[in-house]
């Protein structure tokens, strides 16, 4: 019987987990501990619904409803002086609750504060683009689409950014293996040489620990070099590689170590 491998999360798993291990938490502080954040949160709460808010590692985290993202970011930019959208992306929670979590990392240079706005969307749901508020969201949203397949409504150019346009799959989903699927494995061969070349070129070698001393195609034999494709018998003659032929080369002086000066201190 084959061992069961989960399909919803194909990322690396720890090979040993203590069943009774309870992971500690990064401490969450109440918003009231910081006057600036408290005022900001009050301003957000006055207009929009906030489901949760706390301070973690010096930054305020605010959970909002997905439909309000444009409004909240506009409020933050125009009234609360959060002038930069530093970063935005998504987190894949599909396996657990069929949701994506999207975060917007905001920076206020006047207040020297950072706020993380977070929201959940359903699988397949699109977000409102904030490209018109922050130009930096233009590329971030494209990257998010590329990596997770989350589309942004109202984005002027919703296409892949990091991967080629004809790529299949969204790599940062937990269902996507690190080494790629069938399509990714043959992408360049299919594109350049066509599908019939797959047999000639052969599959990718993905095992980084693979060593085969009888494979002269892919492995060098230091000190016992043979031409590519030779059948290895184990009785290869010892060859010494020098940068120049023994007999010297036409019109080229051979480097003589004895008559050279060695500089020990490169900064002299």
């Amino acid at each position: 019987m084959r061992a069961y491998t989960p399909k919803d999360n194909v990322q690396a798993k720890p090979y040993y987990t203590d069943r009774f291990y309870i992971s500690p938490q990064v401490p969450k502080e109440a918003i009231e501990n910081d006057a600036v954040f408290a005022a900001d949160l009050a301003a957000i709460k006055a207009k929009f619904e906030v489901s949760d808010a706390y301070i973690q590692v010096g930054q305020m985290v605010v959970y909002i409803h997905a439909k309000n993202n444009y409004g909240v970011l506009e409020l933050l930019r125009d009234e609360l002086e959060y002038t930069q959208l530093t970063e935005m992306s998504a987190i894949d929670w599909l396996a657990k609750e069929n949701k994506f979590e999207i975060f917007y990392q905001m920076l206020s240079m006047n207040k020297r504060k950072r706020v993380r706005i977070k929201m959940f969307i359903e699988n397949g749901q699109a977000v409102n683009s904030v490209n018109e508020l922050f130009r930096s969201a233009d590329w971030s949203e494209r990257e998010m689409f590329d990596m997770f397949g989350i589309e942004a409504n109202g984005h002027p150019f919703m296409k892949r950014i990091l991967l080629p346009y004809d790529w299949q799959g969204h790599p940062l989903l937990k269902t996507y293996p690190l080494e790629g699927d069938e399509f990714a494995a043959w992408y360049e061969i299919d594109k350049i040489y066509g599908k019939e070349a797959r047999d000639i070129i052969g599959p990718e070698l993905r095992d980084p620990a693979r060593v085969d001393r009888y494979d002269s195609e892919r492995f060098a034999r230091l000190g016992f070099e043979v031409p590519k494709g030779t059948v290895i018998t184990g009785h290869e003659p010892k060859t010494e590689q020098s940068y120049q032929e023994e007999g010297g080369v036409f019109m080229i002086k051979k480097f003589d170590k004895k008559s050279s000066v060695v500089i020990d201190d490169p900064q002299r």
Partner: peptide, 24 residues
């Protein structure tokens, strides 16, 4: 040569899959 440390979906595992190489 081989894709090196980037054993991922986006990396060609060795440029010799595309063009012939003389020296590694």
């Amino acid at each position: 040569n081989t894709g090196g440390m980037f054993n991922t979906y986006a990396t060609v595992q060795g440029v010799d899959r595309i063009i012939p190489v003389d020296l590694y």
